[in-house]
Simulated scan of single mutants.
Amino acid sequence: MLQSGYINFFNANKCGLYRHFSEVPKGLDLAETFSKLKNWKNGRNFEATNPWDAGKNKNKTPCYCHAVHHDEETGDYFLVLWKGDSDRHGPLYGITVNADGTIEQAVEQTKTKTNKQMIWGRPCYYWVIPELDIIASIKFDNSRTDSAMFQDWVSGCMNFRVPLPEYKVSSTEKGFTRFEMIDDDEDKFKYYFQFDLSMKSLSTSSAEMQDLARRVTQIVRRETVSIKEVDKRKGFANYFRKFTVPFISAEDNSSRKVELRIEAQPTTKEIEKIIETHATNHDANVWEDVGFVLDNKPGKIVWASKYRLTEHISIEDNGRPVFQATDIYATIKASRDRYLAPLKKDILTKQAEANG
Rank of each mutant, 00 (worst) to 15 (best):
M1V: 03
G5H: 05
Y6A: 03
Y6V: 08
Y6M: 09
F10H: 04
C15P: 10
Y18T: 08
Y18D: 00
R19A: 13
F21G: 07
V24M: 06
G27N: 03
D29Q: 07
S35D: 11
W40E: 01
N42I: 08
N45K: 11
N50T: 03
P51K: 02
G55S: 14
T61R: 15
H69L: 08
H70W: 06
T74F: 01
D76H: 04
D85E: 15
D87P: 01
Y93C: 00
T96F: 09
G101P: 06
T112P: 00
T112V: 11
T114M: 03
N115G: 15
W120A: 04
W120R: 10
R122N: 04
E131H: 10
I134M: 06
I138A: 09
D141G: 13
R144F: 09
S147W: 07
A148M: 10
A148L: 11
A148P: 02
M149Y: 10
Q151Y: 02
V154W: 05
V154R: 05
S155I: 04
C157L: 14
C157E: 08
F160C: 13
F160M: 13
R161K: 15
R161Q: 14
V162R: 04
S170T: 15
S170I: 04
S171T: 15
G175R: 13
F179D: 01
F179W: 01
F179K: 07
M181D: 13
M181V: 15
D184G: 00
D184K: 13
D185R: 13
E186G: 15
D187A: 07
K188N: 15
Q194H: 12
F195T: 11
D196M: 08
D196H: 13
L197M: 09
M199P: 07
K200F: 13
L202P: 00
S205C: 11
S206P: 00
A213P: 05
V216P: 03
Q218S: 08
I219T: 02
R221L: 09
T224Y: 00
I227C: 10
K228N: 14
D231P: 02
K232V: 01
G235F: 02
F236L: 13
V245G: 04
V245I: 11
V245R: 08
I248E: 06
D252V: 04
D252P: 01
S255A: 03
E259N: 00
I262L: 14
I262G: 04
E263K: 14
A264H: 01
A264E: 03
Q265G: 00
P266D: 02
E270F: 05
I271G: 05
I275D: 04
I275W: 08
A279W: 01
W287A: 13
D289M: 06
V290E: 10
V293Q: 00
V293H: 10
L294C: 05
G299L: 01
K300W: 10
R308L: 15
I315T: 09
D317Y: 09
F323A: 07
F323D: 04
Q324W: 04
T326A: 14
Y329V: 03
A330F: 00
A330H: 06
I332S: 00
R336T: 05
D337H: 10
Y339I: 09
A341S: 14
T349H: 12
E353A: 15
A354D: 12
A354R: 15
N355M: 08
N355Y: 10
